[in-house]
Design a protein around this nucleic acid. Structure first.
Lengths: 343, 343
DNA sequence: ATGAAAGCGCTAACAT
DNA sequence: ATGTTAGCGCTTTCAT
């Protein structure tokens, strides 16, 4: 493995100074005579020159990598977010360092540190840690961050959130409108702002309708594997079926969990939606593939990725100092897992 | 945003040379008196020192980032691979630069270039380009690459492949064993080695049984969106149903496509597996969530990610010069989408 | 229009 | 055990 050619090598071969070579090869726009310009590019080509971005970055303190921290890439919800991020990053010549926090705050913190050490100055994070001190510290030191999905309680931070409360409200009202009264809410541990908000929306809608809430929360902190949410949905449903009276409808905290709910219900010989209606929350694409197709609340996750990344790039290029605070609105996707109940 | 403290700042404050500071703070193991060691770490702490990895990397030409190029992160097949890669990378203090090639060779090539410019010297790639010249060029220049999933025709390259041919064989034989005779194979464009291999396995098994093949290939190069494969399955099935005689079983080139097949079949009022059996190929976790649960050929994708990354790390740490060539074997997952047909 | 020289932050000979 | 120094590859004043 031979040593790579540097601008100095080229300078020597072209019999010019390395400054001139740099000016040509970095597309600086700095005036260089046509003759030299051609000679230099020709030689660069011949020696198969590849610029060393480390050198440039060290000198100019610019960095075109952004870090992305999400809890789990295997969850289609986040891979859609990632798709959006990656797309606008690429179009702006940025690149994505992917960090999977696996719902472990320590891991997320560790990643934040490494990102900063690597001189990366842009971060998109779906925060799981309530420890905002670390983040705050790095923001003060020049890290640009956009929080997505999970609200972070920091004033000067750009955030692209979903209106989870509104989503919870919409979902519950939809079930109510379809004639359901005994509506249960099954949820993963309430350790993330989003989950609390959905629950709040559900609760508000139920109390407002003069109905009793019925909430089943998963025990926290099992290991997060790919099918965790699905398994969770099954377990929660088992617990639900131990209750005296079966609910008419079940709302789940996300689509994967809803799949588990449906699975377990069907396992017990119940028909969805004939016997029990089920509603999800996320709007991942798989919902339309399932039988029955999942009625759900759509969070524009792909869009969220795009918006967050666009804002980040803007900030990193110094085009906008103002922190952005965006609240994306949910939409109801009516499919086949909710029955109308009139009687 | 104040300037970050460097080892020189600390050296000045501690009244020592920056070399000593470096020796302490980089955990070099180089002997430094206890007194100085403590003073330096204390001061580093006080000024909230964060090492600049760019400086270190430029000096030592080491880099703990690895690039990963996959066609599509939204495909659960690849996100499982990614999960495996990220896990062993993290455990070895490496980090992952994620590149989504979106099935576009030009994009993949562009990413390879950038990766090299960033001085990243490790790459895991699911190659879509037949243009191996670029890759070969960079390998010669010191890029360590492990090809996954798609075979790349280069001798000195580490590869972790699946035995797709064997998978195609197994799938088809399983259908044959279940009494099916008219078995169709629906596939995305044959522009990847894996797809050709599956087809070959299918063909071999059919001809060997003295049966006629029935292959439907998608027209190439639509835009790759998240649901592309699913839509593809639907379209291919529509074409299938235009044939004179309906097949007894359909084998699809991957699970997502199989979902589309099932969907379209059911749309047409046919029952799976009662009227038509369907078999997938991949073994993604969603298969068990569907109704009917998808019978499929499992490729150990998570394992593949882990193995590929382990090998890459090993190579980058100079522990093994030998290129690895591994062929992972498929396994049959019997579920509910294939009927036994006797008579 | 071109070159000389300094320096980004770090490490590693080499000296003491 | 500690310091001096050079230099990784690049850009960018400042001279000319």
């Amino acid at each position: 493995m031979k040593k790579q050619a540097t601008i100095h090598d080229i300078a020597k071969l072209a019999d010019v100074s390395s400054a001139t070579v740099s000016r040509v090869l970095s597309n600086s726009g700095y005036p260089v005579s046509k003759e030299l310009r051609e000679r230099i590019t020709r030689i660069a080509d011949e020696v198969n020159y590849v610029p060393n971005l480390l050198g440039r970055q060290l000198k100019t303190s610019t960095n075109t990598t952004i870090g992305v921290i999400v809890p789990s890439i295997t969850n289609p919800f986040y891979s859609a977010v990632l798709l959006g991020i990656e797309e606008v990053a690429r179009k702006n010549n940025y690149h994505v360092l992917l960090c999977n926090s696996l719902h472990a705050p320590e891991l997320a913190d560790q990643y934040i540190r490494t990102i900063f050490e690597k001189q990366i100055r842009g971060l998109i994070i779906s925060a799981i840690s309530s420890n905002k001190k670390l983040l705050q510290d790095y923001v003060a030191r020049g890290l640009n961050v956009v929080a997505i999905d999970q609200k972070v309680d920091m004033s000067d931070l750009s955030q692209v959130e979903f209106d989870y409360h509104q989503g919870g409200l919409m979902a519950t009202r939809y079930l109510l409108d379809n004639g359901h009264r005994r509506i249960a809410y099954v949820t993963a541990p309430l350790d993330r702002p989003s989950r609390k908000s959905i629950l709040q929306g559900y609760t508000d809608a139920m109390l407002n309708a003069g109905l009793a809430v019925n909430v089943i929360v998963a025990e926290s902190k099992q290991v997060y594997s790919g099918v965790y949410e699905f398994e969770n949905g099954k377990q929660l449903t088992s617990r639900l079926m131990e209750q005296e009276e079966l609910p008419e409808a079940v709302l789940a905290c996300n689509d994967m969990t809803a799949f588990g709910v449906i699975h377990q219900l069907q396992e017990a010989g119940l028909r969805v939606p004939d016997d029990v209606s089920v509603m999800g929350f996320d709007g991942i694409e798989f919902g339309q593939i399932m039988k029955p197709a999942l009625t759900t609340i759509k969070q524009p996750n792909y869009e969220m990725g795009r918006l967050a990344c666009a804002k980040l790039v803007e900030t990193m290029q110094g085009e906008s100092g103002e922190p952005l605070h965006m609240m994306l609105q949910p939409a109801l996707i009516e499919r086949d897992s909710v029955a109308g109940r009139h009687g």
